[in-house]
Design a protein around this nucleic acid. Structure first.
Lengths: 367, 367
DNA sequence: CTGAAAGCGCTAACAA
DNA sequence: TTGTTAGCGCTTTCAG
């Protein structure tokens, strides 16, 4: 009468031993059937499961982890919880993980380097079997450590200079190239570019794509049209406001490195009394859910966010199950989504005609 | 040479014993300083902390939990990961939890009753110290169990018939009342109402508010204008399409139980060739971030989602720290946010004048 | 103020 | 195929 909690009036957890007693087996056997061990007699397996059901037994994760079993819990480090980008990726992760029967611990770095590395360090606190890193900004700080400890992780939308990480990303260069070329083909020759946070690989790739497309379309690259940004709405607003205020002639189109900063650019354009897309075209990157909600609907480069999350989670689980798997790099295709925020530039007096002919030749070439 | 990992070439976790050795203390003492125990000599505390730093020691969560310590991890059960409602609440939770130095495990029920209760049951797996339930739909199924086990939890945006739960909610009744009355005052007399999922308390409260406002404004309640909905965009679309197709005369305004279904209603209205707000007014509830992004900007009832999340998380932490605290109910105020999706009804031929006078009296009365 | 020792609930050899 | 027996790393009496 002192073993299982047959006496006490309330709680006190049902342990594997209770199940063992109830089923007349040892705890080791119970553990075996619970972990799906192959060589257990069918009848014992049934007896055990019955007892499990009957007692409403739920394994203790801490105990299991401590003893070296799988916690089926993985960590997700995100820069923030903004709806849109992170949320969409997370949905994909959630789907994959629920298939893999794993839970998710959420760590938010709030863009702070200290928090980011703190979490990664602390994350090896043992509850988590692997780590998903969404666009980490200071990865170089701790990636080595993770590898030294053979701790499984996958980078989402971020590169690793050493080439030793599993990565899921999209064709950032190509996407930016496509967006820029689309604008060029529309006839724009003064296309401003709002950069992303340059410590994120995607941001530099997109910049590269922008430059390359300009070159291929024989549109001169103008330094004053390349603006600093940080992937945030306010940053986009400031950048756009800056060009609109200070550069003359002003751009007829703005390519923002992500949708969020495109929204900021839209704010600035409107504040300037400019109508979109008649007075100025704006194009984004990501195609977050909000992109088709804003007015006018944002033309943008679609990044398969959800798929990226899903792929990353699947890769991580594979690596956890089989640590010998080599790191893998998956690159998913982006796609230009044409909506309502871009139009040919308004032909202005003298300038218009002139510009048009200036780039006319290249247009047919690049098409 | 076999104790601490002085020999092995790689990983193998730094344990509390390593710290103990390094600092010349026992593991018990190390544990004491780490858990902030008061009666430790200042000098030993320093010695220990030094060793901790030096070795880069991070406590093992599983071990700590198993041994009865705090895991500083709380569970969050959400119906889904849609950006907007859940995301905003989560931001508030994240803030509070990061202040309280706690981590978050995310459980998504995907609106499935089985998953919902499965998680709640399983959640007592020991890793989590408490549970935050966002608009759970089948809470009655397992709330008793949670209470029996003295497992701390807080309901967000959901009621508990027994009155024994800690709850954070908004003034759903009043918010719906305000929205409806606003529409009435604008002159609408045919106001459709798209209900929410009625197994969520907020949905029935909002319906009550709608009816009460109608009554107070002496606007007749018409059953055919009360539509089924489920808080989803598609549901809102279908409901709106249904009234617009089948009810004659059609409503001049639609009050959707939440913003998401309002978006669906907007889709349906536009599909009908109706212009918002000229031909039909639409009002929502929640004020999720997207509400001010859509075109026209949605007039809605603001629910302080982020604050709700924050308050709930704080309450939960308090209850974890001091389990003797009685359950608490916090009700935050909603607020009507007037944007661009509502206008006075178009006065139609004979009908217009007539209707207007019909309710004219009540308008001044209720104001 | 600090140390010794007994587990927390589970898994993983190692036997049987 | 199943049982025995060590721990996993930490907290917590109970002594000192």
């Amino acid at each position: 009468m002192r073993s299982a909690n047959t006496d006490s009036k309330k709680k006190s957890r049902v342990t594997i031993n209770d199940v063992a007693h109830a089923s007349g087996m040892s705890s080791a056997t119970v553990s075996r059937v619970l972990s799906g061990y192959e060589f257990v007699k069918e009848s014992t397996r049934n007896r055990v499961m019955e007892a499990v059901e009957q007692l409403g037994y739920v394994a203790s994760l801490p105990a299991r982890s401590l003893a070296g079993g799988r916690s089926r819990t993985i960590g997700l480090l995100v820069p923030n919880l903004d709806v849109g980008y992170v949320g969409t990726i997370t949905q994909g992760i959630d789907r994959a993980l629920s298939n893999a029967n794993c839970d998710l611990v959420l760590y938010t770095s709030h863009h702070q380097p200290s928090k980011e590395s703190y979490y990664v360090n602390t994350i090896a606190n043992g509850i988590t079997e692997g780590l998903l890193l969404v666009a980490p900004q200071f990865a170089s700080t701790y990636l080595d450590m993770l590898r030294e400890h053979d701790f499984p992780y996958v980078l989402i939308d971020q590169a690793d200079a050493t080439g030793n990480s599993s990565i899921v990303e999209a064709t950032n260069y190509q996407g930016a190239y496509d967006a820029t070329r689309y604008l060029c083909k529309l006839g724009h020759t003064r296309i401003a570019f709002i950069m992303g946070a340059l410590n994120v690989f995607s941001a530099v790739e997109r910049l590269r794509g922008y430059k390359a497309a300009l070159a291929d379309c024989v549109v001169p690259l103008r330094q004053e049209l390349i603006l600093e940004g940080d992937y945030q709405q306010l940053g986009g607003y400031r950048a756009a406001k800056h060009v609109l205020d200070n550069v003359d002639p002003p751009p007829t189109a703005i390519f923002a490195s992500n949708d969020i900063s495109a929204f900021g650019a839209m704010d600035a354009a409107r504040e300037h009394g400019l109508s979109i897309p008649d007075d100025i075209s704006i194009i984004g990157f990501d195609d977050i859910p909000q992109a088709s909600l804003v007015y006018p609907k944002l033309t943008t480069v679609r990044q398969p966010l959800e798929q990226m999350g899903q792929a990353a989670a699947e890769m991580l689980v594979e690596r956890i199950v089989d640590p010998s798997r080599p790191p893998q790099r998956v690159t998913l295709a982006t796609q230009l989504v044409i909506r309502d925020s871009c139009a040919p530039p308004r032909l202005q007096a003298s300038e218009g005609r002139q510009r048009f002919s200036e780039t006319g030749g290249s247009l047919s070439t690049t098409d």
